[in-house]
Design a protein around this nucleic acid. Structure first.
Length: 398
DNA sequence: AAATCGGGGGC
DNA sequence: GCCCCAGATTT
């Protein structure tokens, strides 16, 4: 472990103002504001670009969204890749593009179908935004994907990164990107001593991402940055001996590659106890569609709520009351079917799944009876799907 | 500036 | 268990 004093002793620490024109190599500043000739930093950048692109020519992965530069494909892939790993996205991307090959197909789709294909990817707001944006592109841009980043960022789900990614990757525009891989890579390159995800670091790294861009080949350059971050400049045990730009890297030159970037503060989890209830009547069960503003908006779910009370009797009472509140129906809770533990952002949830028998009452809006087999057509949350599969099994056994 | 939104995979 | 992931949006 390197002491904080060592990190702060880096030349970089003195330059914490957002000045991306100071790219460090070792302890020397290559782009000093005062006396360095423009040629030096120009050479540094040229060398960096050339080595990066040469490396990428050898190591570029064959990813499904790289088969063309169709902005629609790039867009869908970038949205799916937000906070989601490449390997996870691959099969979703293939299915999605098969179902909706063009922006017009997507715009014409039912939202439930879009969500069904998104099921399991998480952050379902992305799917709703993608669908809404597709409609907007058809309505306002004649089905043609907009080419400038400002217009792109007016579309739901497209922020600074995604706009820069589409503009550069699909249209080869000189627009910077900054995301998980390149935050890590650039933070090491600059030997940035603080948490690079905080606002000061973000300002600096965005400026750096812009500064190092070539004037041509931006599409490949930005992808190469991410690829290098993903394959070589990894979070732990970076493969610096394989890195084409280790000679440009402040962290490596100072032996700090295992210490940087500095980790973000850990967020604390809150334990929550929830229940989901399978209310049965005549071989059907109750599901409800989550409304706007709720978690999982647009998805369907079993009656589900937080459990406040302790002890089986009190819990049963609470189940009855909250099922009625949510569905309008009175039901008698039965067996505990299963318990699942899962995480939703900052919550650690213990989910108890109960069976219950319909007693009386009529369903509220956005709530319906359904045969378990038909649940296959509805978008559910991951835990909802697991529970649904369990029900179908027990039905087919009986 | 900080909180919120999910879920899977790696170690 | 904990860390991490081709971030965006709201407060």
């Amino acid at each position: 472990m390197i002491a904080e004093a060592d990190l702060n002793s880096l030349r970089f620490a003195e330059q914490n103002s957002a000045d991306a024109s100071r790219l460090t190599k070792g302890t020397r500043t290559l782009m000093a504001t005062d006396c360095t000739s423009p040629e030096v930093d120009s050479k540094w950048k040229q060398s960096f670009r050339r080595r990066l692109l040469a490396w990428y020519a050898k190591h570029e992965r064959d990813l499904p969204w790289r088969k063309s530069q169709d902005p629609y494909r790039v867009w869908v892939s970038e949205v799916m890749l937000q906070q989601t790993q490449v390997e996870t996205v691959k099969p979703y991307f293939q299915r999605f593009l098969k179902a909706f090959p063009t922006v017009k197909n997507l715009a014409a789709a039912e939202e439930s179908q879009v969500l069904r294909l998104w099921e399991g990817l998480g952050y379902y707001r992305r799917a709703r935004g993608l669908h809404a944006a597709a409609k907007q592109i058809v309505a306002e841009h004649g089905g043609q994907f907009p080419q400038d980043v400002v217009t792109m960022q007016s579309l739901p789900g497209i922020g600074r990164y995604t706009a820069g990614a589409i503009a550069s990757i699909a249209f080869n525009q000189r627009e910077p990107i900054l995301e998980a891989n390149t935050i890590r890579l650039l933070a090491r390159l600059l030997a940035y001593p603080d948490d690079p995800t905080k606002s000061a670091g973000q300002r600096l790294l965005w400026a750096t991402a812009e500064e190092i861009l070539p004037s041509t080949n931006v599409s490949r350059f930005n992808q190469a940055l991410m690829e290098l971050g993903s394959l070589v400049c990894t979070p732990t045990q970076p493969k610096c001996e394989e890195c084409p730009v280790s000679r440009h890297c402040g962290a490596y030159q100072n032996g700090l590659q295992d210490e940087l970037p500095r980790a973000a503060a850990k967020l604390k989890f809150t334990d929550v106890h929830e229940a989901a209830v399978v209310v049965r009547k005549n071989g059907q069960v109750i599901v409800r569609q989550c409304g706007t503003g709720e978690r999982w908006a647009g998805l369907w779910d079993f009656p589900r709520f937080a459990i406040e009370s302790e002890g089986p009797l009190f819990v049963e009472e609470e189940l009855i009351k909250k099922v009625c509140q949510q569905t309008g129906v009175t039901a008698k809770p039965g067996a505990l079917l299963t318990t699942m533990k899962h995480g939703v952002t900052r919550y650690r949830i213990t989910l108890d799944c109960y069976s219950a028998q319909f007693v009386s009452g009529r369903l509220k809006r956005h709530t319906r009876w359904i045969r378990p087999a038909e649940l296959a057509d509805l978008p559910l949350s991951t835990t909802g799907r697991k529970l649904a599969n369990r029900i179908e099994k027990s039905v087919s056994k009986n």
